[in-house]
Design a protein around this nucleic acid. Structure first.
Length: 915
RNA sequence: GGGUGCUUAGCUCAGCUGGAAGAGCGUCGCCUUUACACGGCGAAGGUCGGGGGUUCGAUCCCCUCAGCACCCA
């Protein structure tokens, strides 16, 4: 084995081997355990969030596979309608080609080309992360069979009346020129104005003042509303105003929507351009006059002077014209929420258009129940509150998009505009007896991408056919996802799954946090703080990193700031840490927090851990050429059982951070720091018997091999690589660690006696080391140790374990003082009543030792005082559990002895100093 | 306005049902001890955001205040 662990060499080799062994496929026996991957954008690339999520899923899958489950991790990608169409359209524009010029069929062909060209990138990146998905089952949301499932669902929902088409107010993106769902708009507070406008009363008896943030829409006003209880305006209800500029008469109505405390208390009602006004208009039977084109310019429903003006220009002109008429009462600064499209960043316009909707309430009710009844469990539990909150207020889902890339809506229209829905034109004709001569025109729109995503858990398993996969792997075991898509995806999968399969799509939803940068900022291209996970695996130089972060910026003016920040954070670029280190870092990050700050130092620590494991294995392999199991052997097995039990608990609770820390702590601080060092006292000793050496060797390799299996789900590569070398010595067979059994704590017994004895050994060694460390005694300098007040038990342990003490504490000689014999002036450590003395002569500065003793005594006295105060309270003895009281008493006794001994020692040192 | 979180060592975070405060990184000291300097040994560092309450006992439960973050309207 090489001196240092070098991940690059082993990773691709091992992954290829696993894949060729078919180790990723379900084995067909054992209980089913399945996870569907949240399908990434087919033309996208892997970001830190994917890498984190994939690590979690892979760890869960590998763990279950090793436990003998029939494990399926279903991979695939999403066609990502808007996102992908935008990318390809931008490419075309760069070549001076417009989408419309190209035509629908040719454009779609270009998208498919782009998909073929770039679609493999993310899959290959997942391979680098070690993701053990079954690649033979990879699916794409626009595959024929998945598209068929989409059509099937659409047709069935339509026939049940759960999909309808209608003219409704929707969020319209005037740049992309498509409708969006409520979820695809992001509202942010922006600084704007509140215009107070005077609307003259129709009878000429004065005016009312209305306050609005969007004066340009006044041309589409249908009414002015006041609150029915608002005394100021009660007399006006039922009268009308003369709408300026438009020169129309509109009524003054009473509606609760008008807020007496906001503005003037009068509010203009523009039903076709505001969601609240739409409701008011509906309640009051107002006309809905659309005054905008799909580009958000004013249309022919406004006076000629305003036609064709863009929203912003129209605002300027309307305000100017009103001012000229003396109808602007005042203008005040006002912060308002501006809704923008999450893709285009365009300000969304509420627009009346014909769209397709899913009637959601009948689907939501059972989906709420499934969580209430525990058929689906959120982890952590509190996310179900977020889910309920949204589901109880859910609105109908606008599913049509005016795009080309996606599942085209399976609806046809005849010349009279009658709509026919079916899986194909042929089916529609047959069903409705439409002769070939009747012209049918297919709906131009495609479905919201999330419509097909909602079917993912069953469309990937062959639904609507009754496949073997459906019966075995559905419902899936757990969905692993970020909280940001609970509404977009999780809720919709639950609704669709229940509706079409009669069962939940997954039994648990593990909601993890979102990866942020070191300062808690969201990682984004525009902020220039993204890290490509593979750059952590392979490393990247500073120049390449700078180039990556600063090319193709939407806002090129950010470039210097991004460069500066990058240079400061990564002066040397990023070193190659390897996949296992990255995965271990991700695992330890998988706490229950919702914001997870990514810290490269953590990866470095995990890389160091890999190297430590590697070198511990080197030591083990050097020593297995060839029983009697000694204390250390028994002890490490007992500790391994504890570590495995902790790991097991972590897996059960989706706490990979706890799994990681249990195994990390064991590996480094028990196996490495103690056991490996203890075996040196056996293996490198002429006194130890062949049987003892053999016991140590067997335990070394056995513990290592078990540990590797325990760590495999988190660090698949290094564990496989070492396992391949160690398995023969450990007597294990099998092609790959991937398919070896996951170790169970229950197979190893706790050994209380070994732990008790080892605790004595450890405390002895730590006592001596503390003196050495604080007195700056070089490790190479072996020291003499004298023991005073040794009890019978101490003498027994000493006889049995002195080899360990000498080796690990750097002791040259150990001498037990006869009772009453004079002790040399020494530095002292305490172990119960036993005093471990390191003679000072020529080695230790008495003043330093006095300091050290003082410090320890102060600490002991502080503890003692606290305990005394506690036990002095009569209620404590009365109310606290007896074992707690007893424990405190024992501790008090210990501390009293300790303080006494420390004082005696201090007196000796003082005497020496006084000489 | 409604909702959900968070505040623990210099930094990033654990701390399970209330019973002597932990890790990683960083810092300081000693050290080429033949698996590992991507290392070994030792050490320093916290009134667990403030205040109040419940309890024999609170980082943990309750109330309140402050600050931060996110979601919904």
């Amino acid at each position: 084995m090489d001196k240092a662990f070098s991940p690059a060499e082993i990773e691709s080799r091992l992954y290829a081997r696993w894949e060729s062994l078919g180790a990723f496929k379900p084995n067909g026996v054992g209980p089913a355990y399945s996870i569907v991957i949240p399908p990434p954008n087919v033309t996208g690339t892997l970001h830190m969030g994917h890498a984190f999520q994939d690590t979690i899923m892979d760890a869960l899958i590998r763990h279950r596979r090793m436990q003998g489950c029939d494990t399926l991790w279903q991979p695939g990608t999403d066609h990502a309608g808007i996102a992908t169409q935008m990318v390809v359209e931008r490419q075309l524009n760069a070549q001076g080609i417009g989408r419309i010029d190209l035509g629908r069929a040719a454009f779609i062909e270009r998208v498919w080309q782009w998909k073929r060209q770039s679609g493999g990138i993310i899959s290959n990146q997942m391979r680098r992360l070690g993701a053990s998905v079954d690649w033979t089952r990879e699916r794409f949301t626009m595959d024929t069979d998945l598209s068929n499932a989409v059509a099937e669902v659409f047709v069935r929902l339509f026939r049940e009346g759960l999909i309808y088409r209608g003219k409704r107010l929707v969020n319209w993106d005037p740049v992309l020129k498509t409708a969006l769902s409520d979820l695809e708009g992001v509202s942010e507070a922006e600084q704007g104005s509140l215009w107070h406008l005077r609307y003259p009363l129709a009878d000429g008896s004065g005016y009312v003042v209305v306050a609005t943030t969007r004066p340009e829409t006044m041309l589409g006003d249908a009414a002015v509303a006041v609150h029915p209880q608002d005394e100021r305006y009660r007399a006006l209800i039922g009268r009308s105003v003369r709408l300026p500029l438009a020169d129309r008469e509109i009524p003054i109505i009473a509606d609760d929507y008008a807020d007496p405390k906001f503005g003037s208390g009068c509010v203009k009602i523009t039903p076709a351009h505001d969601f609240n006004d739409y409701e008011v208009g509906g309640r009051n039977g107002l006309p809905m006059t659309n005054i905008m084109t799909p580009e958000a310019k004013l249309n022919d429903n406004v006076p000629p002077a305003y036609r064709g003006l863009d929203r912003a220009a129209a605002r300027t002109k309307v305000v100017a014209d009103l001012e000229a008429l003396g109808l602007v009462d005042r203008i005040e600064a006002h912060e308002l929420l501006v809704p923008r499209g999450d893709r285009s960043q365009a300000i969304l316009e509420p627009l009346l258009t014909d769209q397709w909707f899913v009637k959601i309430a009948p689907l939501a009710a059972p989906a709420v129940q499934a969580v209430e009844q525990g058929r689906i469990r959120f982890v952590p539990e509190n996310w179900s509150a977020v889910y309920f909150e949204w589901m109880r207020n859910i609105k109908d889902w606008c599913i049509s998009r005016q795009l080309w890339w996606g599942h085209r809506i399976p609806a046809w229209y005849d010349e009279a505009g009658r709509v026919y829905v079916g899986k194909s034109e042929a089916e529609v004709r047959a069903l409705h007896g439409l002769a070939d001569g009747v012209a049918l025109r297919r709906d131009e729109d495609v479905l919201d991408t999330w419509f097909s995503s909602a079917l993912w858990p069953f469309s990937t398993q062959g639904w609507p056919e009754a496949t073997r996969e459906m019966s075995v792997y559905y419902p899936t075991s757990v969905l692993v996802t970020g909280f940001d898509i609970i509404f977009f995806w999780v809720a919709r999968m639950i609704m669709m799954g229940l509706k079409f399969t009669g069962d939940v799509p997954f039994r648990e939803v593990y909601v993890h946090g979102l990866i942020r940068d070191h300062d808690g900022q969201k990682m984004s291209k525009s902020k220039g703080n993204v890290i490509d996970p593979l750059d952590i695996v392979d490393g990247i130089g500073l120049d390449a990193l700078l180039a990556k972060r600063t090319t193709g910026l939407m806002q090129p003016q950010m470039k210097p700031a991004i460069e500066r920040a990058t240079r400061k954070q990564f002066p040397q670029g990023i070193a190659a840490f390897g996949t296992d280190a990255l995965r271990l870092a991700f695992a330890s990050l998988a706490t229950q927090s919702r914001d997870l700050r990514f810290d490269l130092a953590r990866v470095e620590g995990c890389r160091n851990f890999c190297n430590k494991l590697w070198n511990a294995a080197r030591y083990v392999m050097m020593n297995v050429g060839g029983a009697e199991f000694g204390l250390a052997d028994r002890w490490i097995r007992s500790r391994l059982a504890t570590a495995l039990a902790r790991a097991e608990e972590g897996f059960a609770a989706y706490r990979l951070d706890l799994v990681a820390s249990a195994l990390y702590d064991f590996t480094w601080h028990e196996f490495r720091d103690w056991y490996v060092e203890l075996t040196k006292a056996v293996l490198q000793s002429d006194d130890a018997s062949a049987a003892q050496k053999r016991g140590a060797r067997m335990t070394l390799v056995g513990t290592l091999e078990t540990l590797l299996r325990g760590l495999h789900p988190l660090a698949p590569f290094i564990t496989e690589e070492i396992w391949q070398r160690a398995r023969a010595a450990a007597g294990e067979r099998g092609e790959t660690i991937m398919l070896a059994p996951y170790p169970r704590a229950a197979d190893l017994a706790a050994d209380a006696d070994a732990e008790r004895q080892m605790a004595w050994v450890q405390q002895f060694i730590l006592g001596v080391r503390q003196i050495r460390g604080e007195m700056d005694i070089a490790p190479s300098r072996k020291i003499d140790v004298v023991l005073q007040n040794a009890a019978a038990a101490d003498l027994g342990y000493l006889a049995a374990h002195s080899k360990f003490l000498q080796r690990l504490a750097g002791i040259a000689s150990l001498r037990v003082l006869e009772p009453g014999a004079p002790a040399p002036v020494s530095a002292a450590a305490l172990l119960g009543t036993l005093e471990i003395l390191v003679p000072m002569a020529g080695l230790i500065d008495p003043a330093a030792e006095r300091e050290r003793l003082e410090k320890r005594r102060r600490r002991a006295e502080t503890d003692l005082q606290k305990l005394h105060a506690k036990s002095a309270n009569a209620d404590f003895a009365r109310n606290a559990p007896p074992e707690v009281v007893a424990k405190d008493r024992a501790r008090i006794a210990e501390l009293q002895i300790e303080i006494g001994q420390l004082e005696t020692q201090a007196a000796r040192v003082r005497a020496l100093l006084a000489e």
